[in-house]
């Protein structure tokens, strides 16, 4: 198990990225840099392993496909969560199913904690925009709107700062599990695969009779590519 090297500068970079990614998801500019495959790759790259970051991001992405931001739906926050999951896996050495599962678990959990913080932020926004007088002068509306966005970035940065170190230590703890044997690994993989398929099954609209066939055809093509060595 290698040493965990997390300097203050690196922590500051993670917090700044967490704040920017949190802001992107809803407030500004919604360019989707907050998606797990981007955030986790960034987190992994900051800790020296972008590939591990992408992997954990891809798993989180598929798990989260069933959670779409329709209307006022509650869904896991992806930016800080992906960033920390990617950074955690890269910090933990990036190998073995144990660290990967812990990184995914961490990302999933932080995503839901982030969802709670977003609810709180939205309630605060309600108070910011309540009470009238926003239209006269209209500059008050502009100031309150900007303040809400600054608070959103602060919220995401705080979330990142609070969980950065615990997540990396947790993933490091799981390093030894990469030695676990076939049966446990198979069970874990089965459940992860089932979850992935469940997530995507809930995430796509099944409106046509051909949809399941297309899904299976995609899986079959990928399996054929794997088995024949691409």
């Amino acid at each position: 198990m290698s040493e965990l090297d997390l300097s203050l500068g690196l922590l500051a970079a993670l917090v700044a990225c967490g704040a920017a990614l949190g802001l992107d998801a809803v407030s500004w500019p919604q360019a989707m840099i907050s998606r797990p495959i981007v955030a986790a790759t960034l987190g992994g790259a900051l800790l020296g392993d972008a590939t591990s970051g992408f992997l954990v991001g891809a798993v989180l992405e598929l798990l989260g496909l069933g959670h779409t931001p329709y209307g006022a739906a509650v869904y896991p926050e992806t930016g800080p969560a992906g960033l920390l999951a990617g950074a955690g896996l890269a910090a933990g050495g990036g190998s073995g199913i144990g660290p990967l599962l812990v990184a995914v678990a961490s990302g999933w959990a932080i995503g839901w904690i982030g969802a709670i913080s977003i609810r709180m932020q939205r309630s605060l926004n309600e108070r910011l925009l309540a009470g009238g007088g926003l239209a006269a002068p209209a500059k008050k509306l502009e100031r309150r709107h900007r303040l809400a966005m600054v608070l959103d970035a602060l919220r995401a940065g705080t979330l990142t700062a609070a969980f950065a170190l615990p997540i990396m230590l947790l993933v490091k703890l799981a390093d030894g599990i990469s030695t676990m044997e076939g049966v446990v690994a198979a069970s874990a993989l089965l459940l992860v695969g089932m979850g992935l398929a469940g997530g995507v099954g809930a995430g796509v609209m099944r409106r046509r009779a051909t949809d399941p066939l297309l899904l299976l055809a995609g899986g079959a093509i990928a399996l054929a590519m794997i088995v024949t060595g691409r």
């Binding site: 598929l62 990928a222 399996l223 794997i226």
Partner: peptide, 17 residues
């Protein structure tokens, strides 16, 4: 749908022990 079917397999393959 095609891409989802393949992505589930590909990602699981990439992370498989």
């Amino acid at each position: 749908l095609l891409l989802i079917g393949s992505a589930v397999v590909l990602v699981s393959w990439l992370v498989a022990p």
